[in-house]
Amino acid sequence: MSDKPAIRIDRVSKTFRLGDGNELSALVDIDLTIAPGEFVALLGPSGCGKSTILRLVAALEGATAGRVTIEGKAPADLCQSHRLGVAFQDHALLPWLDIEANVALPFHLAGRSVDKAQVKDLISLVGLAGFEKARPKQLSGGMRQRASIARALVLEPEVLLLDEPFGALDAVTRRQMNVELQRIWSRHSITTLLVTHSVDEALFLADRVVVMSGRPGRIILDLPAPFARPRAPSVMRDPAFHDMVDRLTEALEPEGAHA
């Protein structure tokens, strides 16, 4: 790992102007540095602005104050050079394309010829081999999310952004997807920012867990997740894992609530 940060969020604030003329302060003075190859999970209650941070890194929003840079450049530059991968809670697969074409879409948007072998590899890596010609509506929710993760990885991006990618899945499928993502990520080791409200998910997947408080969003805790990789599901039964889950859960409790 080089010392130069992959993602630098430098004292960023974000204010939204509401329809009635009032302003909503979503983020205040956020400072976060992510090293190359690091997997950071942003954990927080809903509405705490964690998705806004991801959207700032994805150049989908602009900061009101402060600066977001990726490898020293503006995030929009990375989008323009097609080096960002993303998966949302809503799979955002195009309904008129089959799985293969959906996964290959980033090649077209980058104006590159489709690397068919790469598409095929990724489809089988996420466990969808045999479903290349299926349409999104024919697949289950979990399978659609696998496809959207394959699509996020297909260009071998420098930075991977995951916005609650498993938020719409049931608990069993979600855990299974976490295990799969862990396995896939171990192969690629891309700088990754994951936004989630699941403590288990954050701890199991990330090198570092950053906890945010709600409205306006601030960082209140920044903990390393010191578990050796590759991580087996058994990590989640480790007492140390449980201790950290407790600490993080406590940090997530709103002020004034009983710990």
């Binding site: 994805a58 150049a59 989908l60 991968g85 799979h91 955002a92 879409l105 980033p106 948007l109």
Partner: peptide, 15 residues
């Protein structure tokens, strides 16, 4: 547009 697809195209740098 299908939900999320607009953001997707922007992040992937589509023209």
């Amino acid at each position: 547009l299908p939900p999320g697809s607009d953001d997707l195209f922007r992040v992937f740098g589509g023209s």
